[in-house]
Design a protein around this nucleic acid. Structure first.
Lengths: 130, 130
DNA sequence: TTCCTTGCAAATCGTTTGCATAATG
DNA sequence: CATTATGCAAACGATTTGCAAGGAA
């Protein structure tokens, strides 16, 4: 896999690094287009996939049917708000014990797990009370 | 939401109840067509969605881009084999402590979590060794 | 007779891909 | 120069939907 430099990829990476809200491909497209009006959706998808494949970014699936992306590749958990659909990080210890527990009564080999949490985010909680 | 009886829905429910492999909509379609040659894919989708909405069945997402369905709605975890794509049940205690742990440093309200495990199933493990 | 449900086909949504051209090393 | 990357548009797979006709209460 031979990589070649590209301004488009750089600006995608830069955009993603400046964000904590786990944007979708389309949001990345919209954002990068500000500074790169001619970039195409295809290029955004191709680069997001490439960057995720080489581990530069993480692809996040939280059950809403759209892939989200995260420049923070350190292991951590995510939360999705059922009201507004926003995705955020969750501060909690790693649950690798889960993987062990799952392997107890299982014949095959368990490599890992995917977990995410859902509910109402702080903002949506407040709005409901008022 | 006023329900009316339908043979198609019955046979979908019946098909799903006789299965432990968490079929996709298309697999349900193929299966039900044996006894119901004229059923349409749209009807299958409509009924699976309806049944999932009223809690008769569960919709399962394990990151492979396709929805799986399960007639067993009791809370339990799932495993997806990265080799063959098969989805199976996992026998392990409920990890509701997870939800609590996640709520510790979080401003909003956490209602629950979705978790699934991945790796190699028993069959694929054996094949690799031979 | 009311209104839910169906079959069919077209539409939608997110994502991928083929191709000719442009940019990189 | 050899290749990788791009823009564009067409293709894709899974799922949803509009509509006229059929079936249940």
């Amino acid at each position: 896999m031979n990589l070649k430099h590209s301004k488009q990829r750089d600006s995608i990476m830069e955009f993603l690094s400046g964000r904590k809200d786990h944007p979708t491909a389309d949001m990345v497209y919209m954002g990068v287009r500000q500074s790169f009006p001619n970039i195409s959706l295809g290029t955004v998808y191709r680069n997001l996939t490439l960057l995720a494949d080489i581990g530069e970014i993480a692809r996040i699936r939280v059950g809403d049917g759209v892939d989200h992306f995260d420049a923070d590749t350190s292991p951590h958990y995510h939360f999705i708000c059922k009201e507004c659909g926003g995705v955020s990080d969750l501060e909690m210890e790693n649950m690798d014990t889960l993987t062990e527990a799952a392997g107890k009564n299982f014949g095959g080999r368990i490599e890992g797990h995917v977990s995410y949490f859902y509910g109402q985010c702080e903002n949506c909680c407040k709005q409901k009370m008022s």
